[in-house]
């Protein structure tokens, strides 16, 4: 074993007024990752459980086939969509705002030309 440093040299930028928020966000994302790790481990267990042999060893040695990898990719994308929903909502609000502005501009153009 070796212990590599976890901190990259260089000042870390702060993205929010309160540094606690930066930490909370980092923890949230790390936690989200660990939930996915758990879920995939369960997925491995479910696929293996009906076979024989030491379950833990087989789970650790399990490597997804291309088909399973593709399925997991889709599951992860869905999971991230769910967790990141508040951000997506902000994005959609911005899209709607842009669309509203555009349709209003079109209405003005229509009235002027019509």
């Amino acid at each position: 074993m070796i212990e590599l440093p976890r901190k990259a040299k260089g000042e870390r930028p702060s993205y929010f007024e309160d540094g606690t928020l930066d930490s909370m966000l980092s923890m949230l994302l790390a936690l989200a990752g660990e939930v996915v790790v758990l879920r995939e481990r369960l997925d491995s267990a479910e696929r293996i459980i009906d076979g024989s042999g030491l379950l833990t060893d087989r789970i650790d040695a399990y490597r997804p086939s291309p088909e399973v990898a593709a399925k997991r990719e889709a599951l992860r994308a869905q999971f991230i969509d769910l967790v990141m929903r508040p951000v997506q909502q902000e994005y959609e609000n911005l899209q709607e705002k842009a669309a509203r502005q555009e349709s209003y501009h079109k209405a003005i153009d229509l009235c002027i030309s019509g």
Partner: peptide, 9 residues
């Protein structure tokens, strides 16, 4: 298996 899940996330 577990490390790969974490990385793929």
């Amino acid at each position: 298996s577990e490390e790969e899940s974490r990385q793929m996330f």
